[in-house]
C-alpha cells in the first residue's frame, strides 16, 4: 500500500494512505483528545475536541475524519485549539452534575481527564442543565442521562450487532437530545440483552456497570484481564481485585469478532469472583432473580453428568 508523509507538531512521519491524522498522531505518541471517537466505531466527529490546525487552511479539521496526505503539516496543541477545547469542555461541564466525588466513573472518566488536562472546572450558573433521569430498571446497568454527553458511542456499538441488539438511539433534538432504549423504554422493558457493550465504551458515568458500584474504585483496584472461555469468540473482561480479593467483573471494549454477551460475563464472574452477586434473567421484559444453574442453562448438562458419573452406571 502507498505511504504518505506528513508532519505533526514538527515531527515528520510516514503512514499508509487512508490513515487518519488522529491515528497518525497516536503512532507518534501524540495523544489528541476525543470523547466520541473510538477505534472500534464508525467516525462521527461529534465532540469536536480532536480539531487540529492544518497549515494553509484557516478552517479547523477534526483529526478523526481527516485523512493524512503527503506534505500535510498539522498542529495539535496551538493556543487557538486549546482555547476552543476549553470552551467545549466548559459547555459540557455546564450541563453536567458536579458529582465526581461519588461517581463510580471517577478515575477513569474521560470528561474528568480532559477537564483536568485543560484546567476547566464546574461552575455555578442559572441556565439549563440536563435533567436528572436515571434508569435503574436493569440489575446490570445504570443509565444516568444527566451525565450523558451525547457522544453516541453507546448507540454505535449497540448498533454493530445487527438485529439482535440495535437497542439504543438518539431521540429529540437540540439541547433536549437524549439516548433512549427502543422507543424510550426502560432497559428492562426494551430488548436490551445486558451485554454491556455500551457500558464498556461510555466515556463518562452515564452508563455504569451496576454490579461493580460501591465495591471498588478504579485507582484502588488491581485489574487482571481474563478471556472468556464460554464460546469461541473469546471476549475480554477486567477482573477487579481489592485487597487481594476478586470483587467485580467488567466488560472490556468489544473487539472485532468479539461481541460480548451476558452469559460470558456471568460465566467470568462465576469463575473468578469469590462471592458473585445473584444473577438475574430477563423473562418477558421483566428481570427476575435466578439460580446460577438456570441463568447459565446448565441443568441438562449437570443432570447428564450426574447420570454418567453415577457409580452404578460404571462398567
Amino acid at each position: 500500500m502507498k505511504n504518505v508523509t506528513l508532519t505533526i507538531n514538527g515531527k515528520t512521519l510516514s503512514v499508509p494512505s487512508g490513515t487518519t491524522v488522529f491515528d497518525a498522531a497516536r503512532s507518534l505518541g501524540v495523544e489528541i483528545p476525543a470523547l466520541c471517537h473510538h477505534e472500534s466505531l464508525p467516525v462521527v466527529s461529534a465532540c469536536r475536541l480532536c480539531l487540529v490546525e492544518v497549515e494553509g487552511s484557516r478552517k479547523l479539521q477534526t483529526s478523526c475524519s481527516l485523512l493524512a496526505t503527503d506534505g500535510m503539516k498539522v498542529q495539535t496543541e496551538t493556543p487557538r485549539l486549546i482555547k476552543y477545547r476549553r470552551a467545549i469542555l466548559q459547555l459540557l461541564l455546564d450541563s453536567h452534575p458536579n458529582d465526581c466525588l461519588t461517581c463510580q466513573k471517577a478515575g477513569e472518566c474521560l470528561l474528568q481527564k480532559y477537564a483536568y488536562q485543560y484546567g476547566v472546572t464546574f461552575r455555578e450558573h442559572d441556565g439549563a442543565r440536563r435533567p436528572a433521569q436515571t434508569d435503574l430498571s436493569s440489575p446490570y446497568i445504570v443509565k444516568d442521562d444527566s451525565k450523558c454527553i451525547l457522544c453516541g458511542r453507546c448507540v454505535r456499538t449497540c448498533d454493530q450487532v445487527e438485529k439482535e441488539r440495535q437497542v439504543l438511539a438518539f431521540a429529540g433534538r437540540g439541547y433536549a437530545t437524549r439516548i433512549v432504549a427502543d422507543d424510550d423504554k426502560t432497559l428492562e422493558t426494551s430488548k436490551c440483552v445486558s451485554c454491556n457493550r455500551c457500558v464498556s465504551l461510555c466515556p463518562v458515568g452515564a452508563l455504569l456497570d451496576r454490579r461493580i458500584m460501591g465495591k471498588v474504585r478504579p485507582w484502588e483496584a488491581e485489574v487482571r484481564v481474563k478471556e472468556c472461555r464460554s464460546c469461541d469468540y473469546g471476549c475480554h473482561f477486567d477482573v477487579y481485585y481489592k485487597d487481594g480479593k476478586a470483587v467485580a467483573v467488567k466488560a472490556r471494549a468489544p473487539e472485532p469478532g468479539r461481541p460480548l454477551c451476558l452469559r460470558g460475563r456471568l460465566m467470568t464472574e462465576l469463575l473468578w469472583l469469590e462471592r458473585p452477586d445473584t444473577p438475574w434473567r430477563k423473562i418477558g421484559g421483566k428481570f427476575v432473580k435466578a439460580s446460577w444453574v438456570k441463568v447459565l442453562g446448565l441443568q441438562r448438562l449437570i443432570d447428564k453428568m450426574e447420570l454418567l458419573d453415577a457409580p452404578g452406571d460404571r462398567q
Binding site: V44, S45, A46, C47, R48, A87, I88, L91, L92, D94, S95, G127, A128, I149, L150, G152, F170, G172, R173, G174, Y175, A176, T177
Partner: peptide, 13 residues
C-alpha cells in the same frame, strides 16, 4: 439543532 455536536447543541443554548 440536531443535537449531534457539542458547540451547536450546548453553545447555541
Amino acid at each position: 439543532s440536531c443535537g449531534k455536536c457539542v458547540p451547536c447543541r450546548e453553545g447555541t443554548k
